[in-house]
Design a protein around this nucleic acid. Structure first.
Lengths: 223, 223
DNA sequence: CAATCTATTGGAACAGCGTTCCATTCATGT
DNA sequence: ACATGAATGGAACGCTGTTCCAATAGATTG
């Protein structure tokens, strides 16, 4: 807690929690979740594992801190004072885009609820619900629905990102999934098969927003 | 593919993919996700790891198959021909309860999209949307919203289940989380702090259904 | 300036994991 | 009775997160 207060730093290349988190984010972004090992991190920082563990308690904590950092940046970016509906859409899209850019954040948000990242999202959306005039008794259920939806898409997107072979492009991937869907048993999966054609050229981001709008419409109709 | 066709089984205690999956489910239910190791599984089945890998390609595949088995049972249970709204609620609640009983399924559903388990859920809900009269162009977005919401709650519930120390009961856990929320900075988290009191004695299942109803209301208003 | 002392470092060592390998066993078809 | 190939079980491999600890660096003290 009182570390480093009024003390000139020891050397310019000194380790610090911040530098470690930044390095972790870089590795995660470059190589995905699997690439973040303590050894890789140590090599990246030109140090040993013991030095890292002096600044960071756990690999879990490190991942959580990295995700918190990414989400905190997003939430401060969208803080502007737009109309409540637009503000909610902005928060949602901000989280969506952040996870699109850093799929590991999606998996992490999921694994550890109740952390700053999740709280920031709840807060950002909840405030707007008050402005929107959602009844007090309904606010908790409503924010819960929106946040769970956002996190659901987040996690699923992250999982998909993990599935796509690094080389292949998006439309090739979608086509192959659509082909699989089409090959399903027509008796058992009539609906899924019918969706296959729409899957091929749908836009994840637009579909995500359509879901947000659907929930917002539900909120309106309940008022 | 043609294994074991018209062949008497070799011995009564023979291994099989099915027995391995059943044992895995038992271990997962008893000890949680962390308890399923290949060694533990081998010990449970009184065999070696090599024998297991003869029947199962991967630990991932094993987990996926276990989750598929649990979800398939749920989906066949709720297959009944109720009215579409009720059928959708039944599917949702079925998945919710299954994940409440087997938290590891929640995590797994999440990690590997496009597997039978997820397809079953999409199919089960999608069919009802057609019956409900959702416009063809909107069906994909709508089923996506519902499924992502369900999976979002699923994953989050699973994560929470992992957080609750095995001994503690639910209300004690909720109280402690509520206390943490109350202790947050009032300037930064006014909304979250206000939710704390509702958190303490809310019902996850009811809240989940409220979310489903919110989305259903959104669907209605768009028709 | 020399001595001391503590915060920090880097790498060796440990236990446990998923997976592979392979000599051995078993039930069958000839 | 023999040969064959499916099935077994356990040793071994490479990797992981984490702990431990002797060595160091830089501020503080005498």
């Amino acid at each position: 807690m009182i570390r480093k207060i009024d003390r000139t730093e020891r050397r310019s290349d000194a380790l610090s929690r911040e530098r470690i988190i930044a390095a972790a984010i870089e590795i995660l972004d470059t190589g995905g979740e699997g690439a973040l090992t303590v050894r890789a991190l140590a090599a990246h920082l030109a140090t040993g594992s013991g030095a890292i563990y002096w600044h960071v308690v756990d690999k879990n904590e490190l991942l959580a801190a990295a995700a918190d950092a990414v989400i905190a940046r997003v939430m401060s970016d969208v803080a502007g004072g737009a109309k409540p509906r637009e503000a909610i859409r902005a928060v949602a899209i901000g989280v969506f885009d952040a996870i699109d850019a850093h799929p590991w954040v999606g998996a992490q948000l999921f694994r550890e609820p109740g952390r700053p990242a999740t709280l920031d999202i709840i807060e950002g959306i909840g405030r707007q619900l008050r402005v929107l005039g959602v009844a007090k008794v309904a606010q908790f259920d409503t924010v819960s629905a929106l946040v769970h939806y956002i996190l659901g898409v987040a996690g699923q997107n992250a999982a998909n990102a993990r599935l796509v072979a690094p080389g292949t492009d998006r439309s090739a991937f979608l086509s192959s999934v659509a082909a699989q869907w089409t090959a399903l048993d027509p008796a058992r999966y009539p609906f899924v098969r019918q969706m296959a054609s729409q899957l091929r050229d749908h836009d994840d981001r637009a579909q995500f927003l359509a879901g947000v709008d659907l929930i917002l419409a539900g909120i309106d109709s309940a008022r």
